[in-house]
Design a protein around this nucleic acid. Structure first.
Length: 599
DNA sequence: ATACGACGCGCG
DNA sequence: AAAGCGCGCGTCGTAT
C-alpha cells in the first residue's frame, strides 16, 4: 500500500552528498554519501514526496549550523524547477550534465578516457524547459530511469557511476599550480549557475507592460489591429518609397532594397546601417529610422509582450553553459538582447526597488589579473580602467584606450585598433603576451584554457587536414590563403576564449556568492510580497536579471541599500577567490531605482 | 510545406 | 565609424 507520508528523516548528519536518481519501478532513489563517496544510506520515495524530503535535509543542516548537503543530480534544469514550484530551494548542487561537458575537454584532467567513454552524457545543447513550473503538473515523470527531458541518463545507477567518474577526473588534476582547486571551484560555480538560472526563470523580471506599451506607441504609433502595420511605421515606409521613387518597393527584401538604392544612385554594397550611414541621399535618414522601428516591432513589439510577459513578469529561459566559452545563452524571448530603449519597462513592484550593478570593464580586469600584469592592474585601480590607461600615458583619449583594449581582446589588426595595440604591447607586456600566446596556440590548432580550467574545443579533423594540405607543395595559392585566414580566425577565437571564459567564471562566482548572501536576508510578510503568484523565495531580496557582467536584484525598498552592499561584497569576494593576492579590483556601477534606466 | 544559410541587428 | 570576439532571433530567398 502506498503512503503519502514522506520517508523518515535521514539518520546521518555526516552526509555530504545527496544523490538523486530514478528507479526502474518509477520511484526515486536518494543515496547519501560521505565526503569521500562512501554510501551511508539509500531511501526510496515517490516523486511527490521529494520536496518535503529536500526541505528536511536543507532545514536540518541549517538548524545545526552545518552546511546543507550538495545535491547531485543529472540535470538541475530537469529537477529544480519543480522543487522551486513547491517552494523549496537548495543551497548547493552538482550538475552532472554541465560538469560532464567541462571535464570532457578540460586540459586539467589527466585521464579523460572514462568521462569520454560515457558518451550518453554528451548533450551539446540543452533543450529548453517547455512548460513553466506549475504546482499541478506531474512532478517527475521518471520512466525507465530517464527523466522527462530525456536528455541525459537519470537512473540512479547511471547517476552514481557518472558521479564517481567525475570525482576521479577532478582528483586527477594536478595539485601543484592549484589546477585541482580551480577545477573544483569551476564545478561548484557552474552548478550554482544551474540553480541560479532556474531561480531567475521562476522569479522572472518585473516588467511594466503599460510602460512597454507607452514606448511602443510613442515610437511606432498605437497598437494596430492584428495583421496591420502600426501607423508611424507605415508612414515611415511611405517616406522611404517616396524618396526612392519606387511606390511599391518591399523594403524588407534586401535584394530589392539594394537594387532600389542603386537605381536612386546610392552606391552601397549592402543595406546594413553602418554602410548606409555615410550617404546623404534623402532616402537614407527615413530608411535608417524605418529599420529601427521595424526591429523594435518584430523583436520586442506587442506580439513579444503577449507571448513572454505574464502577471507582470518576463520569464526568459536561461541556458547555463550555452556558449563554448562558458557564458550563458538564452532560449526564447531573447533575454540577453533586451534593447536598451526598453529598459524603463523593467520596473520594481510597489514598495520594492531594482538594485542594478554592472562591472566596469570586466574582461580587461580579468586579463590583467590572469597575466599578473602590474601595470594594467594599476591602471584599473580607479573605477575606470580606460582612464587609468590614459593616465599611464599610453594613449591620449579614453576612446583610444577602449578601442585598443578591445582590439587586444578580439584580435583587431586594422584601423585605429591595429594602430594602438602595439603601444599596449609595450606598456602591458604580460597581459598582451597572455592573449598573443593564446592566439598563437589556436592558430597552430592547439587548445587553450580559462583560469579555472575550461578548455576550448579541439580543432576538428577537417580543419586540421585542411591546414596540413595547405602546407604541401602542390597547394594552390588560393588554398593557402584560405587556410591561413581560417587559422587566423581560430587564433582570434582562442585569444578571446581565455578572457571571455574567465570573465564568465568570475561572473558565476560573483552571482553564487551574492545568491547565498541574499538567501540570508529577511523575508517580508506575505502581504508585502512582490507577487503573490511568485515563488516563495521572491518574498525576500532576490536576483531578477543577469547579463554577462551585470545583475539586477529585486529588493524590498528597506533592504535595497543592504542588497547593494551585498552585491559589491560579492564582487570583492569573487575577485579574491579567483585571483588571491593579485590586487585587482572589480568596481561596480551601482544604482537603486524603481525603474531601470535607459543608458 | 519545411529546412537552412545569409543577412541584419539587438546584447555583452 | 567599424573593426576584432561571443551569442539569439526575425526575415528573406532558395533548396528540398
Amino acid at each position: 500500500m502506498r503512503t503519502d507520508r514522506p520517508p523518515p528523516p535521514p539518520r546521518s548528519a555526516a552526509a555530504r552528498w545527496c544523490v538523486l536518481g530514478g528507479l526502474p519501478n518509477g520511484r526515486l532513489a536518494l543515496v547519501e554519501l560521505t565526503a569521500d563517496g562512501s554510501p551511508i544510506s539509500t531511501t526510496q520515495l515517490d516523486a511527490a514526496q521529494l520536496p518535503e524530503l529536500v526541505a528536511q535535509q536543507e532545514g536540518a543542516a541549517r538548524r545545526d549550523g552545518a552546511s546543507p548537503p550538495r545535491w547531485v543530480w543529472a540535470d538541475a534544469a530537469a529537477w529544480y524547477p519543480q522543487l522551486l514550484a513547491a517552494g523549496i530551494r537548495v543551497e548547493r548542487c552538482h550538475d552532472l550534465r554541465l560538469v560532464h561537458t567541462i571535464l570532457r575537454h578540460s586540459q586539467r584532467v589527466q585521464d579523460h578516457a572514462p568521462i569520454r567513454g560515457a558518451d550518453a552524457w554528451d548533450v551539446p545543447v540543452l533543450p529548453p524547459v517547455t512548460e513553466s513550473p506549475s504546482a499541478g503538473a506531474t512532478l517527475f515523470d521518471v520512466d525507465n530511469g530517464t527523466a522527462a527531458r530525456g536528455a541525459v541518463p537519470a537512473g540512479i545507477d547511471e547517476v552514481l557511476a557518472e558521479f564517481t567518474r567525475q570525482r576521479a577526473a577532478i582528483e586527477s588534476a594536478r595539485e601543484l599550480s592549484s589546477d585541482r582547486a580551480r577545477l573544483r571551484l569551476l564545478v561548484a560555480a557552474e552548478s550554482a549557475g544551474a540553480l541560479i538560472a532556474a531561480e531567475l526563470q521562476a522569479a522572472g523580471i518585473p516588467w511594466d507592460v503599460a510602460e512597454h506599451d507607452r514606448i511602443l506607441t510613442e515610437q511606432l504609433g498605437p497598437r494596430p489591429r492584428f495583421g496591420q502595420v502600426p501607423e508611424l511605421v507605415a508612414h515611415k515606409a511611405a517616406q522611404v518609397r517616396d524618396a526612392l521613387g519606387d511606390p511599391l518597393l518591399s523594403i524588407e527584401s534586401q535584394p530589392r532594397l539594394l537594387r532600389a538604392l542603386h537605381r536612386a544612385g546610392v552606391d552601397v554594397r549592402s543595406t546594413s546601417q553602418w554602410e548606409l550611414m555615410g550617404h546623404g541621399h534623402p532616402a537614407i535618414a527615413p530608411l535608417l529610422q524605418y529599420k529601427k522601428m521595424v526591429r523594435l516591432l518584430t523583436a520586442n513589439g506587442w506580439a513579444w509582450m503577449d507571448e513572454w510577459v505574464h502577471e507582470g513578469r518576463y520569464r526568459p529561459v536561461y541556458v547555463p553553459g550555452g556558449v563554448v566559452t562558458g557564458r550563458w545563452a538564452s532560449s526564447g524571448g531573447g533575454a540577453l538582447q533586451i534593447p536598451r530603449q526598453l529598459r524603463p519597462a523593467l520596473r520594481a513592484d510597489p514598495g520594492w526597488r531594482l538594485v542594478s550593478a554592472d562591472v566596469a570593464q570586466l574582461e580587461p580586469r580579468v586579463l590583467a589579473a590572469m597575466a599578473n600584469d602590474q601595470g594594467m592592474i594599476r591602471a584599473g585601480a580607479g573605477t575606470d580602467l580606460y582612464a587609468g590607461i590614459v593616465a599611464a600615458g599610453v594613449v591620449a583619449t579614453r576612446q583610444e584606450a577602449k578601442v585598443g583594449v578591445l582590439g587586444a581582446l578580439y584580435g583587431g589588426t586594422t584601423g585605429d585598433s591595429g594602430r594602438i595595440v602595439p603601444r599596449l604591447r609595450r606598456t602591458f607586456p604580460r597581459a598582451m603576451a597572455l592573449v598573443d600566446d593564446a592566439a598563437r596556440l589556436g592558430e597552430a590548432g592547439g587548445t587553450v584554457s580559462t583560469w579555472l580550467g575550461r578548455s576550448s574545443p579541439p580543432a576538428d579533423a577537417a580543419w586540421t587536414s585542411a591546414q596540413q594540405a595547405a602546407n604541401l607543395p602542390d597547394a594552390s595559392t588560393a588554398e593557402q590563403e584560405r587556410t591561413r585566414r581560417s587559422a587566423r580566425d581560430r587564433g582570434r577565437f582562442t585569444r578571446n576564449f581565455v578572457v571571455q571564459g574567465t570573465a564568465a567564471e568570475w561572473a558565476l562566482s560573483w552571482m553564487a556568492g551574492l545568491r547565498l548572501a541574499l538567501s540570508r536576508f529577511e523575508e517580508v510578510p506575505e502581504n508585502q510580497a512582490a507577487r503573490a503568484s511568485g515563488p516563495a523565495f521572491a518574498r525576500r531580496a532576490h536576483l531578477a536579471f543577469f547579463l554577462h557582467d551585470e545583475v539586477i536584484v529585486h529588493a524590498p525598498a528597506a533592504e535595497a541599500e543592504q542588497a547593494a552592499h551585498a552585491i559589491q561584497e560579492a564582487a570583492d569576494a569573487a575577485g579574491l577567490l579567483l585571483f588571491p593576492g593579485s590586487g585587482i579590483d572589480f568596481p561596480l556601477d551601482l544604482a537603486i531605482t524603481e525603474r531601470s534606466e535607459e543608458k
